[in-house]
Simulated scan of single mutants.
Amino acid sequence: MDIHRRSSCRLLAGVLVAGSLAAGSAHAATRGAPPAAAPAPVAQVAPVFDMAPLPVTTGQLAQFILTPSGQVAGLLLADGTQVFCPRELGDSLPGIVHPGEQVSINGLKGAGRPIVRAYAVTGPRGRRIADVRVEGAVIPYDSPSIGPDVPVDGIILAPLYDMQGKVQGVIMRNHAVVYVGETNASRLAAWFKPGATLHAIGTGVAGERGTAINAREIGPDVNQAIHVEPADAPPPGAFPGSSGYDVIPGGSTAE
Rank of each mutant, 00 (worst) to 15 (best):
residue 104 S to E: 15
residue 205 V to K: 05
residue 141 Y to W: 05
residue 1 M to H: 14
residue 179 Y to Q: 08
residue 67 T to R: 10
residue 173 R to L: 12
residue 168 Q to M: 11
residue 171 I to M: 13
residue 197 T to Q: 13
residue 167 V to R: 14
residue 220 P to W: 07
residue 14 G to L: 12
residue 135 E to P: 00
residue 210 G to T: 00
residue 78 A to N: 09
residue 25 S to K: 06
residue 200 A to M: 11
residue 40 A to R: 14
residue 35 P to T: 02
residue 43 A to K: 11
residue 84 F to A: 05
residue 137 A to C: 04
residue 12 L to Q: 11
residue 144 P to C: 07
residue 64 F to G: 02
residue 49 F to V: 14
residue 79 D to I: 00
residue 211 T to G: 02
residue 156 I to D: 08
residue 142 D to I: 13
residue 251 G to E: 08
residue 115 I to P: 06
residue 63 Q to W: 07
residue 110 G to L: 09
residue 45 V to Y: 15
residue 230 P to T: 02
residue 31 R to D: 10
residue 153 D to Q: 15
residue 95 G to I: 03
residue 116 V to H: 01
residue 148 P to G: 07
residue 254 A to H: 10
residue 82 Q to I: 04
residue 27 H to S: 10
residue 117 R to F: 02
residue 178 V to R: 06
residue 11 L to Q: 14
residue 212 A to E: 02
residue 139 I to Y: 09
residue 254 A to W: 15
residue 85 C to M: 15
residue 185 A to Q: 06
residue 145 S to K: 04
residue 62 A to I: 01
residue 39 P to L: 08
residue 170 V to C: 08
residue 189 A to F: 06
residue 223 N to V: 08
residue 123 G to T: 06
residue 205 V to L: 06
residue 119 Y to Q: 12
residue 204 G to Y: 06
residue 113 R to K: 15
residue 253 T to F: 12
residue 159 P to R: 11
residue 180 V to D: 02
residue 8 S to Q: 15
residue 36 A to R: 13
residue 181 G to I: 09
residue 92 S to I: 03
residue 110 G to C: 10
residue 167 V to N: 10
residue 189 A to C: 01
residue 139 I to H: 05
residue 51 M to D: 10
residue 37 A to I: 10
residue 223 N to A: 13
residue 198 L to P: 06
residue 33 A to W: 05
residue 177 V to D: 04
residue 74 G to Y: 00
residue 235 P to R: 13
residue 184 N to E: 09
residue 194 P to F: 06
residue 29 A to D: 13
residue 32 G to I: 08
residue 152 V to N: 10
residue 123 G to K: 04
residue 226 I to Q: 14
residue 138 V to K: 11
residue 189 A to G: 00
residue 69 S to L: 11
residue 102 Q to Y: 01
residue 91 D to A: 14
residue 62 A to Q: 13
residue 229 E to H: 03
residue 203 T to E: 12
